[in-house]
Design a protein around this nucleic acid. Structure first.
Lengths: 256, 256
DNA sequence: ACAAAAGTGTTTATAATACACCCATGA
DNA sequence: TCATGGGTGTATTATAAACACTTTTGT
């Protein structure tokens, strides 16, 4: 489909959306011992943004986040958490965005839509990047996992959104188990510890970490991993999902 | 000013507001050993709601919460915390509200405005009711502190908002000091403990509570209270504001 | 003097921290 | 056999929980 027809279709559906309101999704993934975020690069530009979109008049707000994420990245994620609303009055009229829309031959109506002042509700999800293949939408040239530390300047206050998501995750991990969504099915204790260290941004004692996590009784231990490494083969673990969620409910006071 | 002219004025300013978006304020106060919330009773009805209003197109979202609260209750509060966004698609068209507006001779345009589907951003503040005298606005007959347990059915999902605020406060108190905003300038240890017990909804050990709170080093001890009670006169305390806020910043792991 | 409530102390249990020890493995 | 990393144990310290003892006050 050509840009024009996509944009025409969007123009036709403008009436279905609530004006001035948007949703943006911060999707955090853990890969190569670093937190990554899923970001989009807009077609024919070097401009990046979070996957975002608009809220339909006849749609639950939460649902709009699922839909937008699916449409823009192909990711089908059912646990998106409302994080924060960004509502400064100057959240509007990004010149680079208008320029780009003009280059795409967008109609004045569409350009005007994007020049609105937007109030944006941010949603957060934690996922294992290996379980998802992002597919950029028509507006985007690329949809990539970038290490949080290497993320360029994004549109609007999207960098702030990622910072908030990171901070929120670091706070949550202290009171609730984290990892089920971020790690592969089976993992070693070392991998889990590294995840915690990355999120908390500080080293943890190996022995104590192991004891604490095991005492939570949310892990299932499997056979030994026959790794080709020159050391004792570690056990593989997986989360005991029911117990994990049980703990999520109670979840108070994990690590300090 | 008569209803008509107020409504006329509102109708004129409708264009200044972002459609479909509202803010609602949960103001919690502590009084007579119970949490209270500030609620409005609409004129000539027995319908109650939280103080809420709309967001101006040229106004920061956070600022709209201050303004709305000031306009509707007279309360001038500078620390409102964004709590949650309520965005179900069926948040619209409360029959009782339309009926009431018709009885007030509101124009079709205004009635239509109130029949919109709204997405509402909830803000929270904790205050000492004795420091504020609520003044109902033109639309309201009363603006009262009601004990949370006695609050009737409110418009929309406002009861859910209060529940969320209460839950949030109970979680927060475990990791951050609470009380500076809720108690009078000077208070006894017993009063502070009772506040914690009410919010956490469980009894606390007197001796241990006193030790823990004092160890935080956020209180200043004053002279003895010369109460007319038949027992040892307790000390009066007040919060050491700088240290209190310092602790708010760090704030991890208070009570379990 | 006594009841009531305040302030403080003691004991015990639990959890956090630091770190040491031994084991398994592949080079 | 040795370096590396894995699993587990122990000693020390810090924190939490239960509750007992003493003090002050008005009646």
């Amino acid at each position: 489909m050509k840009n024009e027809s996509i944009l025409d279709k969007f123009e036709e559906s403008l009436e279905d959306f609530i004006p001035s309101l948007s949703v943006d999704c911060v999707i955090l993934g853990y890969q190569n011992s670093a937190l990554h975020a899923l970001v989009l690069r807009w077609k024919d530009t070097n401009n990046w943004s979070l996957p975002g979109g608009f809220v339909k008049k006849a749609e639950d707000l939460d649902h709009s986040a699922f839909r937008v994420l699916k449409d823009r990245t192909g990711l089908d994620i059912s646990f998106l958490k409302q994080l924060h609303v960004f509502g400064n009055k100057n959240r509007r009229d990004i010149p680079a965005l208008s320029t780009q829309l003009k280059e795409m031959n967008a109609s004045p109506k569409i350009i005007q839509w994007f020049q609105q002042r937007f109030i944006s509700v941010t949603y957060l999800a934690l996922v294992n990047p290996e379980s998802f293949i992002p597919i950029p939408d028509y507006l985007s040239e690329a949809c990539e996992w970038l290490p949080i530390k290497d993320i360029p300047q994004l549109y609007f206050d999207h960098n702030e959104m990622i910072a908030k998501a990171k901070e929120y995750t670091a706070t949550q991990i202290k009171y609730q188990p984290i990892g089920l969504m971020l790690l592969p099915e089976k993992f070693t204790m070392k991998m889990l510890q590294k995840l915690y260290e990355v999120i908390l941004d500080k080293p943890l004692d190996r022995g104590n970490f192991q004891k604490k996590i095991l005492k939570l009784d949310i892990l299932t231990r499997h056979e030994k991993q026959m790794s080709g490494a020159a050391h004792k083969a570690p056990f593989l673990y997986s989360f005991n999902t029911p117990k994990y969620y049980e703990f999520l409910e109670r979840g108070i006071g994990l690590l300090s």
